[in-house]
Amino acid sequence: MQNFINAYSWINIRFLLQGLWVTIEISVASIICSFIIGTFLGIIRYAKIKYLSAIVGFIIDLIRNLPLLLIIFFTYFGLPNIGIKPEIIPAAIMALTVFESSMVAEIVRSGINSIDYGQTEGALANGLTKWQALRLIVLPQAIKNMLPALVSQFISLVKDTSLATIIVLPELMYHAQIIYGQNTNYIIPMFVALAVLYFIVCYSLSLLARYLDRHLA
């Protein structure tokens, strides 16, 4: 019990919260980037543009089927080979964005596919261009359909930030490790704190999604 009281001193809590802040920053940035890029890629894949769609689709499949840890290594250690030398936080955002975009692209593609093609045909018959039909008729419905899958993907993203400890990203998990590494009596209190903090962030995200779902309908 004494361990818990000592472990939750203000200094340690503040250190954890600093880590949590980095986790949130990186999550928000990656969610925004991967939503935009992922939607774009998903549409390209759906659109069946000659060669382009096939190549984009295949790269998405490659990335989707690799562990995120490897994507993190490839980004952080590999990008400098082509002249991009990111700092640790941009590198983490890039790695997460690359990985999550490919997941989002897949969600978007199947979301668009789930909308009856008859609707596009109807829109085309009414004089809309293909792009307008997609933007005005299909996408709004598709986004509503994919909302649950998207949200659970973004919750995964928040949890996945913890893997970036491997490249010494100063996020929540890493800060907890620093604390219990310096005093091993704090292992259990730190894991309890980690579980609670991650749970709060991820669960509020799913509550937000439920709220949006109800009010968008």
């Binding site: 949890k159 893997l163 998990m173 894991f191 980690l194 579980a195």
Partner: peptide, 19 residues
């Protein structure tokens, strides 16, 4: 379901390994 869905796998696995 909610507990295990909302905590990173890394935290769960390391928790088992260390605790």
């Amino acid at each position: 379901v909610e507990v295990f869905r909302n905590i990173p796998l890394l935290v769960i696995a390391m928790g088992f390994f260390l605790i």
